[in-house]
């Protein structure tokens, strides 16, 4: 027993020592880091990678604020990149000056949330819109009106996201209101839309949309493009992803380096690494989301490259969520709490 304990203590001490050199600690969303890509990175650089996971941007923010995390790379969404920069929780990496930055698609270079590309490298991006059972719905969904003001046949068959973030912005797009409005009249309009939609809603839920679509509990459901593709391929039923003419909500995750990261140099190597087409393609093939690197297409799985969910049709705007001011956020929370009171 004693020897076992000693061995344990020794092992812990050793692993502690190993962390100081040749180590990279990634903190990323659940099931969102390609093991194949990591293996390639480890082989090319000799750096040992560990991955921890979180499930919301808020968790990431709370962890970084608490400090002492030991993480070297984190993957926040676009509006949280803004927040993390403002809070001084990220360090400059000079991503825009890296040798591989030229691979980044022109439209994603120097995005509004990191306007000089001083901090982050693009990871994956996608859209949030509506998935629906084409066979049961009987037609193509072309407008957000069909989701927010559903016809009688959809009564009790509409599934809406559990938290307001994306669906509130979809409502803004439909009503042609600005994101993060601090105007109470705008919030009232959105609230009216949600209240009128509620009788048709079967559940506010961001987890079971694929199962619910497959078994007919819902016919239309808020969903993300990558998640919908999985549903379409797994299910025997006819599930489609809508690109309404008014537009869809976009999300864009980036790889960034927290302030005070112990292995910042290794983290920069990693950022450089993921902007190579053949590397980020491994990630896309694993998580099944789009990336922002030109030339990655030819390394993608065939079904992924041609997936209708991945290719936003010409003329459909993609609008990215922003970090709202406290006043605007308060209005959103009020609308949502009133809706579910």
């Amino acid at each position: 027993m004693k020897t076992l304990l000693l061995a344990l203590v020794a092992a812990t001490a050793l692993s502690g020592a190993a962390q100081a050199e040749g180590q990279l600690n990634i903190y990323n969303w659940v099931e969102y880091t390609s093991p194949e890509m990591l293996a390639k990175f480890e082989k090319e650089t000799g750096i040992k990678v560990t991955v921890d996971t979180y499930d919301t941007n808020e968790t990431l923010l709370a962890k970084l604020k608490a400090g002492g995390t030991g993480y070297d790379v984190v993957v926040p969404s676009q509006h949280f990149v803004e927040i993390l920069i403002k809070e001084g929780l990220l360090q400059e990496t000079g991503a825009g000056g890296m040798s591989t930055y030229a691979n980044v698609d022109q439209r994603w270079q120097k995005p509004v949330w990191d306007p000089e590309a001083k901090y982050c490298a693009p990871w994956q991006w996608g859209t949030a819109s509506i998935a629906y059972r084409k066979d049961l719905y009987g037609k193509e969904m072309t407008s957000l009106k069909e989701f927010f003001e559903p016809e009688e046949a959809l009564k009790g068959k509409v599934q809406v996201f559990k938290s307001p973030d994306e669906v509130y912005n979809l409502a803004n797009i439909y009503l042609n209101k600005p994101f993060c409005s601090e105007n109470a009249e705008d919030a009232k309009a959105v609230q009216g839309l949600f209240e009128a939609q509620k009788p048709a809603v079967v559940t506010y839920n961001s987890e079971n949309q694929n199962d619910n679509l497959a078994n007919g509990t819902s016919i239309v459901a808020n969903n993300w493009n990558g998640f919908t593709m999985r549903a379409r391929m797994d299910s025997k039923t006819d599930i489609a992803y809508a690109f309404p003419k008014e537009g869809v909500v976009g999300w864009f995750d980036s790889a960034c380096v927290p302030a005070g990261a112990q292995n910042a140099d290794n983290a920069k190597k990693f950022l450089e690494f993921i902007m190579k087409p053949e590397n980020i393609a491994l990630q896309s093939n694993y998580a099944r989301y789009s990336n922002a690197i030109v030339g990655a297409d030819k390394f993608l799985d065939k079904d992924l490259a041609s997936a209708p969910e991945m290719n936003v049709p010409e003329g459909v705007p993609v609008k990215f969520g922003q970090a709202c001011s406290p006043e605007a956020q308060k209005l959103i929370d009020k609308v949502w709490t009133k809706l579910l009171q």
Binding site: S163, V201, T203
Partner: peptide
């Protein structure tokens, strides 16, 4: 189905989404 908030979900919402 989360159509009506309970105390538990209200508290969770304040910490996770509303950041209050």
């Amino acid at each position: 189905g989360g159509k009506r908030m309970m105390l538990g979900s209200l508290i969770y919402f304040q910490f996770a989404t509303a950041r209050n």
